[in-house]
C-alpha cells in the first residue's frame, strides 16, 4: 500500500523519462517471463511433482501406467488418431490454402475470413452439429437411403465420425498455417521456375511444396498436439471403443481423484509428444525448415 502511495509523490511523477532507457533488458522482459513461468512452467512443475509424489513418493504412478496394457493401447490409439487427423488435415488444407493464396484480393480475403469464421463457433456446438449431420436421420443418411442403401451405413459413433469431427475443428488451424507461408512465397519464383523449363507440376513439387514446408510443419504440430488433448469430440460422436488419453486423464481426476496417476499420464503424453518432435527433427531438420 505504501508503495502505491510513494508512486504518487509529485516528484516521482516528474522523474525524467530517460530513466526508462537505463532499465536493463532483462527487467523489461521480466513480466513476460513471469507470466510464462506462472501460466506454463509452474503448473507443469506441479504436475511433474504430483506424478512422483501422490499418493506416496516413488515411481509407482509411472509403473502403473506403463504396465497396464489398456493404457498403452489408449496411448497408441490416441497417437494414431492424432497422426491420421493431422494427415487428413494436411491433404485437405493444402489445396484450400493454395487456392486462397492464389486467389488473393477480395476472393482470398472472403475465403480466409470464412475459414477463420468457424473459430467463433464453440467447438461443442460444431461437434453437436456433426451428431445431426451424421445421425441416423441426418442428411447423409437420407441421401444414402435415396441411393438405395437401406438401412444407411452407420456413421455416428464410429472412429470415422471422430476423425471427421476433429478434422473439421482443426482444419482451420492447418489452412491458416499453410496459407501464411504460401502467401509469403514470391510469385517471381514461380515465374522463374516456369521460365527455366519447369512444368506446373514440377514447379509445385520442387519450389512451392518445399517452400511451404514450414507452414505444413507448424500446422501439423498445432493439429497433432491439439488432437492429443482432444476428448470431447471423440466422446460425443466417436466409437464407444475409442478412448483418448485426455479422456482417460479426466476420468482419473474427476471420478477417481487419482491425481498421481493422472499426472503421470499427462507427463507421459508430454514425453511422447516431445519424443515424436525429436524424431521428426532428426528426420526433417525442424530447426532448419523453420527458418
Amino acid at each position: 500500500m505504501s508503495a502505491a502511495l510513494t508512486g504518487l509523490r509529485p516528484e516521482a511523477a516528474h522523474r525524467p523519462r530517460t530513466r526508462l532507457r537505463a532499465v536493463p533488458t532483462w527487467l523489461l522482459i521480466a513480466p513476460a517471463l513471469l507470466y510464462m513461468g506462472v501460466v506454463f512452467l509452474l503448473p507443469l512443475a506441479n504436475t511433474a511433482w504430483v506424478s512422483f509424489s501422490d499418493p506416496m513418493p516413488g515411481l509407482h504412478n509411472y509403473i502403473e501406467v506403463l504396465t497396464t496394457p489398456a493404457y498403452l493401447r489408449i496411448y497408441r490409439n490416441t497417437t494414431l488418431m492424432a497422426l491420421l487427423v493431422t494427415g487428413i488435415c494436411i491433404v485437405m488444407a493444402y489445396p484450400l490454402a493454395l487456392y486462397i493464396a492464389r486467389a488473393g484480393g477480395a476472393v482470398g480475403a472472403v475465403l480466409l475470413a470464412a475459414t477463420g469464421l468457424s473459430f467463433w463457433i464453440s467447438f461443442l456446438v460444431r461437434t453437436y452439429a456433426w451428431t445431426v449431420i451424421l445421425g441416423s436421420r441426418g442428411p447423409v443418411s437420407q441421401v444414402a437411403r435415396w441411393m438405395g442403401y437401406d438401412p444407411p451405413p452407420v456413421l455416428l459413433f464410429t472412429s470415422a465420425a471422430s476423425i471427421i469431427g476433429m478434422t473439421h475443428i482443426l482444419l482451420p488451424f492447418m489452412v491458416l498455417s499453410i496459407y501464411v507461408v504460401l502467401a509469403r512465397i514470391d510469385p517471381v519464383l514461380l515465374r522463374a521456375a516456369s521460365g527455366l523449363g519447369a512444368t506446373r507440376g514440377q514447379t509445385f513439387r520442387q519450389v512451392v511444396l518445399p517452400l511451404s514446408m514450414p507452414g505444413i510443419i507448424s500446422g501439423s504440430l498445432l493439429v497433432f498436439v491439439f488432437c492429443l488433448g482432444f476428448y470431447v469430440t471423440p466422446a460425443l460422436i466417436g466409437s464407444p471403443r475409442d478412448l483418448m488419453v485426455a479422456s482417460l486423464i479426466a476420468t482419473q481426476i474427476e471420478d477417481l481423484l487419482a491425481f498421481g496417476t493422472a499426472s503421470a499420464m499427462a507427463m507421459l503424453l508430454l514425453g511422447a509428444t516431445l519424443l515424436m518432435l525429436a524424431v521428426y527433427d532428426r528426420a526433417l531438420g525442424l530447426a532448419n525448415l523453420m527458418k
Binding site: A70, R241, D242, L243, D255, L256, A258
Partner: peptide
C-alpha cells in the same frame, strides 16, 4: 470398488 472397477471398465470398453 470405484477405482478398481472404473479402471477395469475403461480397459474393457476399448477392447
Amino acid at each position: 470398488i470405484m477405482t478398481a472397477a472404473t479402471r477395469r471398465f475403461e480397459a474393457w470398453q476399448i477392447q
